[in-house]
Structures are given as C-alpha cells and as structure tokens.
Simulated scan of single mutants.
Amino acid sequence: MNYTKVLNIEPGNAICYSGFREGQCPGLVYPSYEQIKEDLLLLNGHWKYLRLYDCDEHSETVLEVIKKEKLNFKVMLGAYIVAEKNNYGCPWGGGTYPKEKLEKNKIYNENRIKKLIRLANQYPDIIFSLSAGNEACVEWTDHYVPVESVINYVRMIKQGAKQPVTFCENYVPWLNKLKPLVEEIDFISIHTYPVWEYKNIHEAMEYTKENYYSVADTYPHKPVVITEAGWTTYSNGRGIDPNNVSEEYQKTYINDLVNWSHVATILTFVFEAFDESWKGSSEALEPEKHWGLFKVDRMPKLVMESFFSGFNMSK
C-alpha cells in the first residue's frame, strides 16, 4: 500500500536528525538555535523529510527554526517513551529498574504523549506524522514497554491530534508480537541494520529488501515506511566487524538504499544526518557514535563530499 496517500505527502528524501554536538547530550546540554539553523541549512535542499525522536527541547528548537526561517521541511515527530517493565534479556544489562522507577516512568510517558499532541497541534503545517515511541518492544531494548501500553498511547494520540500515527521499531517484532498494534496505527515503521546482523556490504542491500518485504507482505493493507537504515563508519569490534565498516561502504549502502527507495516508492529515513559523540560507550570507535553522513564537526563524509566539496566550517 502506497504511503503517499495515507501520509498526504509526495515522495522525497528523508533523514533522521539529532543535532547534539561535542559536549552536548539529551537532558543536559542542547544545541542552540543558531547551531540547529546551521544544521538545517546544510540539510535543506537535499532532504525534505526529517525524523525527530522526542518532543524535547531539541525538537522544540528544530520546529521553531523551521517555522521562523521558512525552511522546506516536513517532520515526523516522536515521543521517546521509557521503560514500564523490566527486560532481563537486555544484552548490556540496562533493562532492569526498581518498581518505583517503573511507576514514575508510566507517568512520564503519559506526559510525553500529551506534549507530543500539543506540539502536533502547534505545528500542523510542519509535522506530518507522529510516533508513539522508538524501539521499546524489541527483545534487546533497555526501555521495554508492553504492547498494550503502546496501543493506549496510540489511541491517546489519535484522540488528540490529526496527523497519521505510527510506532517505530526493529522489523522483527512486527512479524509477531506487534500484530495487535498494526490495526491501531496508520502505517508501520521499521528499522533495518544489516551491518548489526553481520552482513557485509555485498549482502546488505538484499538483506534490507528481505527485511522490508517480510513485513510489507505480511500486512499488504498497511503502508510500511523505513524509519531507520544506515551504515556506521567505525567499530570497536563489539557487535560489528571493523572490516565491514568504512566511509566507502557507507557511501555504497546509502546510494543503493536511496536509489532502491525511489524506484520502489518507499519512504526511507536514512540514519542519520550527523555523528553523535555522546552515544554508546566512551570508546572513540564505538559504532553508535559514527552513523552520520556528516562528522560531529559537520564536515561531510565520503557519501556527501561531492555535494559539499568546498564546505568549510570557518566560513
């Protein structure tokens, strides 16, 4: 099923955007108006659709910049919901919390959803879709939320806002545990990362297609959007073979991904615009830090060099 009718948008390039720079991170230090403006001017003209993960201070500034600077972006805005249940299977041991914390988290999540609704109504001409959460149901998550809770949040959003509603998750849960959620949302949003599943660059694109069609063929009556797909440029060897990552491999995968998405008419959000040094472990080669098409200093990686060959941050 074609996403353009459900979302009332035209085909276009899409990318995940999080603007945290060196020394910044969510909850502590946020990018300034001018820093976000600088980022969006870099992205403007190359991407039409942006995905934002949370309705936090960062997203509020992004929406303000788009409106005040009259930039040509449409936004998928999410609410980042946190753990409501312990996940003892989290591989890095981050999925267990005291009962009191889980109870407070439920209140936090409800308030986050309410804020998502407020922003959706404040910026109806910019925000084209809404997400009730991100990677909160997959077996390895450190912020596990039961499917029943996600369904309740989707219903809250639908009652309070007019934009189409989704939930962003790894492709695997959509094949089984998220089936009850499918009829509640307007479109399905999947994540696919071949390099995390030990695929090399020669296997990557076919594996991405397999992931996509495994979900799309299961639910032919629902549009399926890819809200994350990308290729990191460094790895410390934990989970991703360092031999499988480089700027050259990223360029190959992103170009193949974008070309296929255009031909197949699939809305695909590339992960992600800029490297984020706050993510993951403190190791410099931590793969979570290096998915950007631009480095953390905003210099373009190989995949973008042909468009920004004369770019200089000092200008």
Rank of each mutant, 00 (worst) to 15 (best):
27 G>T: 05
41 L>F: 06
40 L>Q: 02
18 S>L: 11
35 Q>L: 14
17 Y>A: 13
29 V>L: 12
25 C>E: 15
43 L>F: 07
34 E>S: 15
17 Y>K: 12
45 G>Q: 02
29 V>N: 12
44 N>D: 08
27 G>E: 03
13 N>F: 09
23 G>K: 03
34 E>T: 15
43 L>I: 07
17 Y>L: 02
31 P>F: 11
23 G>W: 04
22 E>K: 15
11 P>V: 04
27 G>Y: 06
37 K>V: 03
38 E>V: 04
37 K>W: 02
20 F>T: 09
24 Q>I: 11
36 I>T: 12
38 E>R: 14
18 S>C: 12
28 L>A: 14
16 C>M: 01
45 G>Y: 01
41 L>K: 10
24 Q>P: 09
38 E>P: 01
11 P>W: 10
18 S>R: 03
17 Y>G: 07
19 G>V: 06
9 I>L: 04
11 P>Q: 02
26 P>N: 06
42 L>A: 01
33 Y>H: 10
44 N>E: 11
37 K>I: 01
26 P>Q: 04
42 L>V: 02
15 I>F: 00
36 I>F: 08
32 S>F: 06
42 L>T: 02
36 I>N: 09
45 G>C: 03
15 I>H: 06
32 S>N: 01
33 Y>A: 05
25 C>N: 13
23 G>T: 06
21 R>I: 04
43 L>A: 11
12 G>M: 03
15 I>P: 01
10 E>F: 07
20 F>G: 02
41 L>H: 10
9 I>N: 00
42 L>H: 13
24 Q>L: 05
31 P>S: 13
40 L>S: 01
19 G>L: 10
23 G>P: 05
32 S>H: 11
21 R>D: 10
26 P>W: 07
27 G>N: 11
35 Q>F: 11
17 Y>F: 15
23 G>V: 09
23 G>Y: 03
10 E>S: 09
10 E>D: 10
29 V>W: 01
19 G>P: 08
30 Y>D: 15
21 R>V: 08
36 I>R: 09
14 A>W: 08
35 Q>V: 05
28 L>I: 08
30 Y>N: 15
17 Y>V: 05
32 S>D: 08
39 D>I: 11
21 R>W: 07
39 D>T: 10
12 G>E: 03
33 Y>K: 06
34 E>V: 09
45 G>E: 05
30 Y>G: 07
15 I>L: 06
10 E>P: 06
32 S>Y: 04
14 A>R: 06
39 D>P: 02
26 P>I: 06
34 E>W: 04
16 C>P: 00
32 S>T: 15
29 V>A: 09
44 N>L: 00
45 G>N: 04
24 Q>S: 10
23 G>A: 06
9 I>K: 02
28 L>H: 05
16 C>W: 05
33 Y>D: 11
38 E>L: 12
34 E>H: 12
44 N>T: 03
22 E>M: 15
28 L>K: 14
11 P>C: 04
27 G>V: 07
35 Q>M: 13
18 S>F: 08
16 C>S: 11
21 R>S: 14
38 E>G: 10
22 E>I: 13
15 I>S: 03
22 E>Q: 15
22 E>S: 15
9 I>E: 03
13 N>E: 12
26 P>C: 07
29 V>I: 15
32 S>P: 00
27 G>L: 11
40 L>V: 07
12 G>A: 00
26 P>L: 01
42 L>Q: 00
37 K>N: 12
33 Y>C: 01
18 S>T: 09
39 D>F: 03
13 N>I: 03
9 I>A: 01
